[in-house]
């Protein structure tokens, strides 16, 4: 296993922040991120449509293995140098049910949580930047 593909909800601000954080961490595996509503996901991962309907975080390995929910969280931690040990601890049979409960609780309320934390999704941030950016300088306005 060399690459993990993380399919996340780009409409959830907290998920976008987690994606940024994951991308910045030193990792053992190459992490690639895909927005769940992107048409590229269905093309790249044939047969994933049914799993996309579950509205969960998905992680796909380059071997084609699919992890969802708390298992996907654990796999994201497994990819990181500093957190692989945590992934092993979290995957222990005595802790994994708690991880699942925490995941479900958070996942059901992720939009409200993002609003409460004032974390905007990537598209809204891009929209805001576009609104506040100055108009482009036209080349024909330059003085000769």
């Amino acid at each position: 296993m060399k690459t993990l593909f993380v399919i996340y909800d780009s409409e959830c601000g907290f998920c976008c922040r987690c994606r940024q954080w994951l991308a910045q961490q030193p990792a053992y595996l190459d992490l690639r991120f895909f927005q769940r509503n992107s048409p590229e996901v269905v093309c790249r991962f044939p047969g994933i449509e049914k799993l996309l309907r579950l509205d969960e975080l998905l992680v796909v390995s380059d071997e084609g293995a699919v992890y969802r929910g708390a298992h996907a969280w654990v796999m994201c931690l497994y990819a990181l140098r500093e957190y692989r040990e945590w992934a092993s601890k979290l995957a222990h049979p005595s802790l994994l049910p708690f991880a699942w409960r925490a995941y479900e609780l958070f996942s059901e309320n992720r939009r409200e949580f993002s609003r409460w934390m004032k974390l905007l999704p990537e598209e809204e941030i891009a929209k805001k930047i576009r609104q506040h950016s100055p108009p482009p300088v036209c080349s024909n306005e330059r003085k000769p």
Binding site: A65, V66, Y67, Y78, L90
Partner: peptide, 18 residues
């Protein structure tokens, strides 16, 4: 060198090209 700590819940049936 540790293997993944959790087992996958599904399989696409083919490798994914990175």
């Amino acid at each position: 060198g540790q293997p993944p700590p959790v087992i996958p819940q599904a399989h696409l049936g083919q490798p994914v090209v990175a």
